[in-house]
Design a binder for these strands. Structure first.
Lengths: 301, 301
DNA sequence: CTCAAGTATCAATTTTCTGCATACATGACA
DNA sequence: TGTCATGTATGCAGAAAATTGATACTTGAG
């Protein structure tokens, strides 16, 4: 016997007749005709080759096999309700999941506040965070449905929709021997030590291009993967790190934070798939995220 | 969302796609077309208002809600298999239930052997015994589906089918003061003490009618419900009990067992509903029961 | 004997499922 | 960058199945 031959209408009829005690009453409860119930049970019995109800003047009563089946049927009912309510929760804002793809710096310095704000209003929303290093990984996570939203450098491109949150200003981390001078660098300060930048595509390209605008021979010497390693190198006096404010935190002892001689920043925002259906939980998260921008303007400390 | 709107084909598709990783492979496993699978998942998603799979070049992968649903779906699958296998067990002879309606004397002296023989061959068959007092209760139990078979005085009547097992001979239990004489009574012996019979319809009627054939004034004085009470009364010297051999056991000390001056017996057999579908377990039981008749001819001890 | 309360069955209709053909999407690769 | 391979979506028509209304059948109760 193939269990998938069964129909849920039969399971339902089984349960209802068992409770109602007779076919006619069950039909009323199910809002179908008695004929339908009779058919449902008859087919069920034929397919299983077993008598499930004894019928008579007094209605229908379960056989021992029927009894066992009803127990399983009840559980099936519960599970179906589970499935349905999982869907309802997901659709509703009091439940649901938001999967965020992001960079480490954002995950550390921006998301916690956003999530806190979100949970003040909707404590039941689940958050999952996917930390990646490169821009293409963000795009991939969105397109392949591993994430609902990216919070990072805004992704450009067909099919994406972005919401700007804040600008993450690039600053310079100066080695201890530079001393505590003006927090505003001049161009010539950049020649005093080797330059260090992130090895990540978007950062390193943006910095390289901007430097070339002033001096096409001004090059970055070290490209380092991890933000904290860059800061560590600066602390050891190996050079000047050019990185964004958020990525720089926490700044190691002795290291100075200075404004660059030219404006440069990375736009940070939320990116979603355009034309995709987003859950209310995602919108709630976006609201919470936008609330932050207003209170955390870029600033040099 | 009404959980009963779901179809098992959708649940099945959900599970198979989740395992296969893509619609096409799932379609192969389900032996349907890719179109069918696509339809199934699409309608499921529409009905639930939730995205269950992310699709792309790389096939289909579960969303978080989908993941939760699959867990429930797996359990549903198990339960469906339970239901199907309950039916198979019931139909097969290595499982199943036989519900027997019977009288106390049969339950005590005939059934144990029959059940032992049955279980030698099919140990897994479940037996349930319903003990009743009157014939009409047997009929009712059969007709209303509370029992699969009666083992008792054979039931006559439209719609019943009977199998003769043995004849339960009526004997006389003689009071102690009667002494140990010939085990064969003469008619006049019946006048020496008051007569005692069962109060149950079939017994008392059969005995009364038979006595009247010889002497229309010969009457039973006491009608007692319980066999053991009748034997007890005989032991107290209150009269002669006319009852069947099986009902008489165990015979109390001092009480004599004698053959009646005329032949009288109760046909004992199995009765089933004619035109009803009986499970293999029932037939196996009938076989075991008939095996007994050959070895247990009516005899006076 | 007849009624009342229940179940079963038939044929027609409506609904749903399925498959085919084909369009659409997208990653891989030349 | 264009084409291919691989995967999914969809419109439509035929097939299958559920549902129904009418009616027949069954059986206790009075």
């Amino acid at each position: 016997m193939n269990p998938w031959k069964l129909k849920l209408s039969q399971i339902r009829a089984l349960l209802t007749v068992a409770e109602a005690g007779n076919f006619s009453e069950a039909a009323l409860r199910l809002e179908v005709t008695q004929s339908t119930v009779s058919h449902a049970i008859a087919t069920l019995e034929n397919e299983l080759g077993v008598v499930v109800f004894h019928r008579g003047r007094h209605g229908a009563q379960l056989t021992p096999v029927g009894e066992r089946m009803v127990q399983d049927a009840r559980q099936i009912q519960t599970l179906l309700e589970n499935i349905a309510s999982a869907a309802v929760h997901e659709r509703g804002v009091d439940g649901g999941t938001v999967r965020i793809a992001t960079f480490r710096s954002i995950a550390t310095h921006v998301l916690p506040e956003a999530i806190a704000r979100l949970h003040q209003v909707y404590p039941a929303i689940q958050i999952s965070i996917l930390e990646v290093d490169e821009l293409y990984q963000l795009k991939q996570a969105l397109s392949q449905g591993q994430a609902d939203v990216c919070v990072a450098e805004m992704l450009l491109g067909e099919g994406f929709e972005t919401i700007h949150i804040l600008d993450d200003e690039y600053i310079a981390l100066m080695p201890p021997q530079y001393g505590l001078r003006d927090a505003q660098l001049a161009m010539e300060d950049l020649y005093k030590y080797p330059l260090i930048s992130s090895s990540h595509d978007s950062c390193s390209v943006r910095i390289r291009d901007r430097l070339r605008e002033f001096d096409k021979d001004l090059e970055v010497t070290y490209r380092i993967r991890h933000d904290s390693s860059m800061a560590g190198m600066v602390q050891q006096g190996l050079g000047i790190a050019l990185m964004t404010e958020l990525a720089a935190k926490p700044v190691p002892d002795g290291v100075g934070v200075c404004r660059l001689p030219f404006p440069l920043s990375r736009p940070v925002g939320a990116t979603l798939l355009k034309d995709a259906l987003h859950s209310p939980a995602v919108y709630a998260f976006l609201d919470a995220l936008q609330g932050i921008g207003a209170f955390a303007p870029a600033q040099v400390g």
